[in-house]
Simulated assay, not measured.
Amino acid sequence: MKLRIRHVTRYQFDDPVKYGLQQVRKTPKSSHQQNVLSWSTDVKGGRKELAYEDHHNNTVELLSIDKNAELLLVTSEGEVDITQTDGVIGRHLGPSPLWLYKRGTEYTKAGAGVRALVHETDPKAPDLQRLHELMAQIRKAVAYQTGSSDPAWGAEEVINHGQGVCQDHAHVALSCTREMGYPARYVSGYLMLNETIEQDAMHAWVEVHVHGLGWVGFDVSNGISPDERYVRVATGLDYGDAAPVTGSRVGGAGEALSVQIEVAQQ
């Protein structure tokens, strides 16, 4: 399936920016089940300084914000061809060792809530069966609710509140699967929705490394493994490694941010 994607991020500042840098992770890569046919990033109110691949094998663009800019507009767009693999991504690629993805983070610290979810699965079941059972338990324990979470919540806080968004589901799944002994990573990407083309945020899911299969994707929020509607962009230990934009600036008080994403079948 060929998908056409357009991702526009607009920053309006009440006070001019004196200095600013951004790391942008919006660029898909050709690998495994996806082939990037075209991709470009256009910047108004700033410029692209360079692009590089980080230790998670993500494409990162470094942008500088123009001095005294009151508007920054970043437009990324292109076409990607996706092959259906039922969520199986395959062998591990990139410079980071596989064992790194067993490491916990502030977002994915395991506690009583995580261990209770893991306990609900059958340790004697085949890997895929047990992992699908786990994802179903997480979805039951944490209801998907837009605007219901705090970006600073870790896995245990998400479980305690019993609600969250795709980022929260991913952090709980990472914590649980690592507690079970699997390497697991956060995935940020694009998802074609059936009911609308326009969206206001990227999607998030997880991939777990299963012996004999390699990386396998699980989308807790939608209760499925990723299909040809999913475009992988960035991976990492948690949201912080795969966030679409990170950075810092001097000045630029009174920021107003808007995001517009369009994903459609070509």
Score class of each variant (00 low, 15 high):
Thr121Glu: 00
Leu131Phe: 12
Pro126Lys: 04
Thr105Leu: 04
Trp99Glu: 11
Asp127Ala: 14
Leu72Gln: 02
Glu120Met: 02
Val60Asp: 05
Glu79Phe: 09
Glu70Thr: 13
Glu70Ala: 08
Thr75Glu: 13
Leu93Val: 10
Glu79Gly: 01
Asp66Val: 01
Pro123Asp: 13
Ile65Arg: 05
Gly94Asn: 09
Gly104Met: 13
His119Tyr: 04
Glu106Gln: 13
Gly104Pro: 03
Pro126Gln: 07
Val118Gly: 10
Ala125Arg: 06
Leu73Val: 12
Gly94Ile: 04
His92Tyr: 01
Ser96Gln: 03
Lys67Pro: 00
Leu128Glu: 14
Pro97Trp: 01
Ser64Ile: 05
Val74His: 00
Ile89Gly: 02
Arg130Ser: 12
Lys102Gly: 11
Ala69Trp: 13
His92Trp: 04
Gly111Phe: 10
Ile65Val: 15
Leu128Ser: 10
Thr75Trp: 02
Lys102Ser: 11
Thr105Val: 14
Thr83Pro: 08
Asp122Trp: 07
Tyr107His: 12
Glu120Lys: 08
Thr121Trp: 02
Ala110Tyr: 13
Pro95Asp: 09
Val118His: 03
His92Cys: 00
Ser64Cys: 08
Tyr107Lys: 14
Leu131Pro: 13
Thr121Arg: 06
Leu62Thr: 03
Thr59Leu: 11
Ala69Met: 11
Gly113Asp: 05
Glu133Phe: 12
Leu72Ile: 05
Val88Gln: 06
